[in-house]
Design a protein around this nucleic acid. Structure first.
Length: 571
DNA sequence: GCCGTTTTCGGCCCGACTGTTTTCAGTCG
C-alpha cells in the first residue's frame, strides 16, 4: 500500500507551499487530500490504476495527476523541485510552537536561518529583534519552543496526558464558580498521543475561574492569560489550555474544542449548507445571528440532522456522512470487557503471583483472566521451558479450585519463530486453554517474509489470537511494513483473532487498522500485556482504540461472558 | 487546489490571544 507515502508527500508539499507564501486554501486542499488518503479503505494504487482518483472527494484534476505520478514512480517531480527551492530545516522549524510559515520564511529571507540550531543561536545573539514584527519576547518564546520540542518531541503518550487531565479536573471540580466542566481536545477523543490537554468550563465568573486554574500545584509556567482562555505548562512539560464560556455555550464550546479540526471544518460547512453558522458559542441562524442551540453537543448534532457522534469518531473518517443516515455503529463500552486475556505473571517477566492477579481481576469485576507468560526461547523475558509450563498449568488448576466464581485461563504468549513456527511442541500447545502468538525477535526481516511469518502463525490451528500484530512502539519503533490486507483476510479465513494491545506505547493494532480490519470481517481481543497489577487498568486505552476503530461489543472476544467464551474457544 | 439544488468564478470555518504595532498580522486550535 502506498497510501501513507502519497499522504506524506502531500503533507510535505502543503508545508513547503505554506513557506513559499501560497494562499491558505491551496495548502489546505493538499492537507485535506492527504488526510483522506491516509484513512482511505482502499489501496490508492488500485484506485489510481482504475482511473478513479477524482471520485475521491477533495481530489481534482491537478492532484489526481500528481498522485498518479507518485503511485507510478514512488516520487513526484514537482515535490523534488519544491524541496530544492526550500531547505529541509525550515520544515523542522514549523514544529516550534509560536512559529508559523510566515515567520519561518521571514527568518530565512532576512537572516538566512535554515536550521533549528542556527535559529537558537540567532535568538541568543538577539538577532531577531532587528526584523519587523519580531522582538525580544519573540526570541524568548522561540527559545522556549525549541527546548520544549527537544524534551517532548512534541506529543505525550495517552496515559500520561490522561492522568494529568483527570487530576486537573479533580482540582477544578472543587471550584464552586464552575457550572460544568469537561476534558476536550485529542484527550477526549483518546488519540494515541496528545499534543496538549484542553479543558472546557462554563461559568459566569471567567476571571475568577482562570485565576484558580493557574494556581494549580503542578503549573510550571503560565503561557498566556486572557479573559476567556489561558494556557499553562505543567512540570512534566505538558501544556494545558482552559477555555471558559457561558453555560448556554458549553455544548458548542465542548464540540468545538473536542475537534478534530477536520471534523469541525466539515461540521461548519454542513451548518452553512443548512442555513446556520456554527462557532464555539453555539449554532446561529445565518445572517441574523439568532442563537438556536449550544447548551449541549447533542442539541447541535440533532439540529444539523445528525445522530450523536461519539468523540472517538470525530476524525472526519466518514462519521458525518454515516451519522446523516443514522447508521453509526454502537461502540463497545468501557465496562463491556469481562476479562483480560493478555497478562504476565512472575512465572516469566511479570511481577505478580497468579493468585494476586486473579483476586485483583475478580475485584475489578472481571469473570476471568488469561495468564500468558512468555515461551521458552525468549530468554530475556524468562520464557518458560516446556517442563515449567506443565507445572504452571498445574498451579492454575489448583488455584481455580480455590477461587470461587472466577476462572483463570492458562494461556501463553508464544513466540513466533523466524520461520513462522511456534516456540512449543504440539504436545504442549494442546495443553493450553488458548494460545496467543507474537513476534519478539528477528524484527529486521523484509516485509514479505514478515507477512509470511505472521500468516503461518495465523494458520496454526492452536493459535487463538496474534499479539501486537505490527510490533510498533510509539515514538521508539516503527510498525512492521506488513501486507495488512492479506493478514486481515487470513485472520478472518482461519478464525484467528487480532489483538488490540492496550499498552500505551503499543496500541497495536491502531485505530485505523482496527477499522479496516473490522470492515474485512476480522474479530478482535483487547489485552493489556500487564506485567504489574495496576497495568490492568490500561485496558481503557485498548477499548478507546477499539472505539476509535468503530468497533462494537460483538466484534470483541473478551466482551463475552465466561460461559460464552468457553464455548467459542472450545474449552 | 477544489467545487457548485444560490456559482464554471469566487468563494472556501471561525474566533482568541500575543506581540508587535498604533490598527493588525501571525499563530493556534
Amino acid at each position: 500500500m502506498k497510501n501513507q507515502l502519497v499522504a506524506s508527500i502531500l503533507y510535505q508539499i502543503a508545508d513547503l507551499l505554506d513557506l513559499k507564501g501560497e494562499i491558505f486554501f491551496k495548502t489546505r486542499a493538499y492537507r485535506m487530500a492527504a488526510q483522506t488518503i491516509e484513512v482511505l479503505n482502499e489501496d490508492i494504487e488500485i484506485v489510481s490504476n482504475e482511473n478513479r482518483l477524482q471520485e475521491i472527494p477533495g481530489i481534482g484534476d491537478a492532484l489526481a495527476k500528481k498522485i498518479f505520478e507518485i503511485v507510478k514512480t514512488g516520487d513526484l517531480e514537482y515535490f523534488e523541485k519544491l524541496k530544492k527551492e526550500i531547505p529541509k530545516g525550515l520544515l523542522d522549524m514549523l514544529n516550534i510552537s509560536g512559529l508559523g510559515p510566515k515567520k519561518v520564511s521571514a527568518l530565512y529571507k532576512n537572516l538566512k536561518i535554515k536550521t533549528i540550531d542556527e535559529l537558537r543561536k540567532a535568538c541568543i545573539d538577539g538577532k531577531l529583534r532587528e526584523l519587523d514584527g519580531f522582538g525580544e519576547i519573540t526570541e524568548r518564546n522561540i527559545l522556549r519552543g525549541i527546548q520544549l520540542l527537544k524534551k517532548t518531541s512534541g506529543r505525550a503518550l495517552l496515559n500520561l496526558a490522561s492522568e494529568d487531565g483527570i487530576n486537573y479536573i479533580k482540582y477544578l471540580e472543587k471550584n464552586k464558580k464552575i457550572d460544568r466542566l469537561s476534558i476536550a481536545g485529542s484527550l477526549r477523543r483518546w488519540k494515541e498521543t496528545i499534543g496538549d490537554i484542553d479543558i472546557i468550563a462554563s461559568s459566569d465568573f471567567p476571571d475568577e475561574v482562570i485565576e484558580y486554574f493557574i494556581k494549580y500545584k503542578d503549573v510550571q509556567q503560565v503561557l498566556l492569560k486572557g479573559s476567556t482562555k489561558t494556557s499553562v505548562v505543567l512540570y512534566d512539560d505538558l501544556q494545558v489550555d482552559l477555555r471558559v464560556v457561558k453555560d448556554e455555550s458549553f455544548g458548542a464550546a465542548l464540540q468545538y474544542f473536542t475537534g478534530s479540526k477536520e471534523h469541525n471544518v466539515k461540521m461548519r460547512s454542513t451548518a452553512i449548507k443548512k442555513g446556520y453558522k456554527l462557532n464555539e458559542y453555539g449554532l446561529f441562524k445565518k445572517g441574523t445571528d439568532k442563537y438556536i442551540v449550544g447548551k449541549s453537543e447533542e442539541d447541535i448534532y440533532k439540529k444539523l440532522g445528525l445522530s450523536y457522534i461519539e468523540p472517538e469518531l470525530r476524525e472526519n473518517r466518514g462519521e458525518i456522512e454515516v451519522a446523516f443516515k443514522n447508521k453509526l455503529p454502537k461502540l463497545v463500552k468501557f465496562n463491556d470487557i469481562r476479562g483480560d486475556l493478555h497478562v504476565h505473571s512472575d512465572w516469566s517477566d511479570g511481577f505478580e503471583k497468579i493468585e494476586s492477579i486473579a483476586k485483583y481481576s475478580k475485584k475489578i469485576g472481571y469473570e476471568y483472566v488469561g495468564i500468558t507468560d512468555h515461551s521458552q526461547s525468549l530468554k530475556v523475558a524468562r520464557g518458560l521451558s516446556e517442563e515449567k509450563v506443565l507445572k504452571k498449568i498445574n498451579e492454575i488448576d489448583k488455584l481455580n479450585k480455590k477461587i470461587e466464581d472466577f476462572k483463570i485461563l492458562s494461556g501463553t504468549e508464544c513466540d513466533i519463530k523466524a520461520d513462522g513456527s511456534l516456540d512449543y511442541s504440539e504436545k504442549i500447545l494442546k495443553k493450553f486453554d488458548y494460545v496467543c502468538a507474537g513476534i519478539h525477535t528477528m524484527f529486521k526481516m523484509n516485509s514479505d517474509d514478515l507477512t509470511r511469518r505472521i500468516i503461518k502463525a495465523i494458520e496454526n490451528k492452536y493459535v487463538t489470537f496474534i499479539a501486537h500484530p505490527t510490533c510498533r512502539l510509539i515514538r521508539t519503533r516503527e510498525p512492521f511494513e506488513l501486507d495488512m490486507e492479506k493478514i486481515y483476510d487470513k485472520a478472518k479465513e482461519n478464525n484467528t483473532y487480532l489483538e488490540i494491545n492496550s499498552f500505551p506505547d503499543r496500541l497495536d493494532l491502531n485505530d485505523i487498522q482496527s477499522k479496516t480490519a473490522k470492515e474485512r470481517g476480522v474479530k478482535f481481543i483487547i489485552g493489556t500485556d500487564a506485567h504489574i497489577l495496576n497495568q490492568l487498568s490500561f485496558i481503557k486505552y485498548g477499548i478507546a482504540t477499539a472505539r476509535r476503530g468503530w468497533l462494537s461489543k460483538k466484534n470483541i472476544l473478551n466482551t463475552h461472558s465466561l460461559k460464552e467464551l468457553e464455548k467459542i474457544i472450545g474449552l
